[in-house]
Amino acid sequence: MKVARIISWIGVLAMSAALYYGFTEGNFFVDGGMILDNPWGIVSMVDLYVGFILFSMWIFFREKNILSSIIWTIAMMVFGFLTGSLYVAIHLGKSNGDWDKFFLGTRSDR
């Protein structure tokens, strides 16, 4: 579990740096338009959002509080896997080394 925690925190740092770079050096609307003008850019966006939706389904599965699930999902759609990495890092810490608790969340008590 220690390796997973390290990887998730590296993901948080890498995504934070990448988002900072993108927002300070790029133009979201101009660059985003260029991505959507390219067929492989569209493929990449579909791939990305399918991943966001699947990850968000796991959040809804393991969370007891629907509002918390909604907030995490909105954050996922806006900030991408910065949110996913942070979610994983937080819940790896809360699971205290118990993989069932990590993957199942509130459902692990059943």
Rank of each mutant, 00 (worst) to 15 (best):
G22K: 06
A17G: 07
L19M: 12
K2F: 15
M1S: 06
F28Q: 05
A17T: 01
L19H: 03
V30G: 03
F28H: 02
A4G: 12
L36G: 04
V30W: 07
T24V: 03
F28S: 03
N27F: 05
D31G: 10
F29E: 13
V30M: 09
A4T: 01
Y21A: 13
Y21V: 02
M1L: 14
A17L: 14
M15S: 09
S16E: 00
Y21G: 08
L19C: 02
A18L: 12
I10G: 04
F29N: 06
A14T: 10
Y21C: 04
L19Y: 05
F23M: 08
W9K: 03
T24G: 14
G11C: 13
N27W: 05
M15Y: 07
A17C: 06
G11D: 05
E25I: 00
A4K: 13
S16I: 04
A18E: 08
I6P: 01
Y20Q: 03
Y21E: 10
G33M: 09
L13N: 02
V30N: 11
M15E: 06
D31K: 05
Y20M: 09
I7D: 12
I7F: 14
V30I: 14
G11L: 13
G26H: 07
G32I: 00
G11V: 04
I35L: 08
V3D: 14
G26S: 09
S8Y: 05
A4I: 00
A17F: 09
N27H: 08
T24H: 15
A4D: 07
L36T: 06
L36R: 04
G22D: 08
N27D: 15
E25Y: 05
V12K: 14
G11T: 02
L13R: 03
M1I: 10
V12C: 15
G26Q: 08
M34Y: 06
M1A: 11
I10S: 09
T24F: 15
W9V: 08
G26E: 04
M1Q: 01
F23S: 06
G26W: 08
N27G: 09
G11W: 03
S8K: 06
G22F: 12
V12Y: 15
S8C: 12
S16C: 11
G33P: 07
D31Q: 14
M34F: 07
I6C: 01
V30Q: 12
G32P: 02
D31F: 03
S8G: 05
E25P: 00
V12I: 13
A17Q: 01
F28V: 05
I6D: 02
Y21Q: 10
S8L: 09
I7H: 13
I7L: 15
L19P: 01
F23R: 08
L13E: 01
A17V: 11
R5H: 11
L19V: 06
Y20C: 10
M15W: 08
I10D: 07
G11A: 14
F28K: 02
A17E: 00
V30H: 12
V12H: 15
A17Y: 06
W9L: 13
G32K: 04
I6Y: 04
N27K: 09
M34N: 13
I10Y: 09
V3P: 03
M1E: 01
I7V: 15
E25M: 12
D31M: 07
Y21L: 11
G11E: 04
E25H: 13
D31W: 06
A14L: 13
